[in-house]
Design a protein around this nucleic acid. Structure first.
Lengths: 144, 144
DNA sequence: TTTGAGAGCTATAGTGACTATAGGTTCAAG
DNA sequence: CTTGAACCTATAGTCACTATAGCTCTCAAA
């Protein structure tokens, strides 16, 4: 039995905000739901499931394009999940790469802060390092 | 002796792009430089130093607002560098927090991918986890 | 039956930090 | 003098929302 519910209820149940649900509709990530006579959106449980899926994938850092693809691939239960796995694996690698870069950044920032003798700006190590990339320990990458 | 140079040279020397230099001018992060008779911007070495500072701070992940503040605080060499240190320390803490969150994410994604038996979508663990937050090991945070 | 609050509606603009494009002008080398 | 690279402005696009303004609808209490 599928319960009909307002956008507010669907948002609350899925963990999205109301504006975000409307946004997902606008960009075609979810279907346009039926409306009441007063033009208000009405959602069923399937729609809420889809929203929850999207929301959860977002908290795991998948982009909307990836989510669009995941949703498409999930539609057919008979299909092999190789492509789905590939998307998830690629996201995992992204996260690992990001962590790697941030650790380099962390080391650089920590070194900079540690070297500061808390004196005047003229002798501040932080200012010196920011002014001169050559003072960095290693070639830190651009922040991701 | 301060060398006069075009926006292209200043960009190359500082590691910015030409458009970005113009953007920084537009938002008031750098001063409007003098112009040639043909209306082209001319930069001196001080301007290039400032651009390099900005660029380097950006690669360390400081936001433009923080950089604006760092530049302001750096202007007076006699001043104590306590505020500068505070900004750098706060950035360091941000990075550490980010790493912490990403590691939780990494664990969740790795678990998900590992659990997948490479069968059909119907039994795909990735799809199941995305569909049901309850299947997550821990309460992973929103991606930062 | 009225009334009022809260929820919903659309359309538009703003966020951060650029990046890209279009359509024009200037400069420097040959 | 010509040509082509580099410069100029203004505007729109990126991502995934978020916020605002100015309406309309719904539903429970009085």
């Amino acid at each position: 039995m599928s319960m009909a519910q307002s956008i507010g209820d669907a948002a609350k149940r899925s963990g999205c905000t109301v504006q975000t649900v409307r946004y997902y509709e606008r960009i075609g990530l979810i279907a346009s739901p039926v409306r009441t006579m007063g033009n208000q959106r009405v959602y069923d449980d399937n729609a809420v499931d889809r929203l929850s899926f999207i929301r959860h994938a977002r908290t795991l850092g998948f982009g909307l394009d990836a989510i669009r693809e995941l949703l498409g691939l999930s539609a057919d239960p008979e299909r092999s999940c190789a492509e789905i796995d590939a998307i998830a694996t690629s996201r995992l690698e992204e996260v690992r790469e990001r962590i790697r870069r941030l650790k380099l950044l962390e080391a650089e920032l920590a070194r900079m802060v540690r070297a500061c003798s808390q004196g005047s700006v003229a002798e501040c190590r932080v200012v010196q390092v920011l002014s001169d990339h050559g003072l960095c320990a290693a070639d830190h990458p651009d922040v991701a």
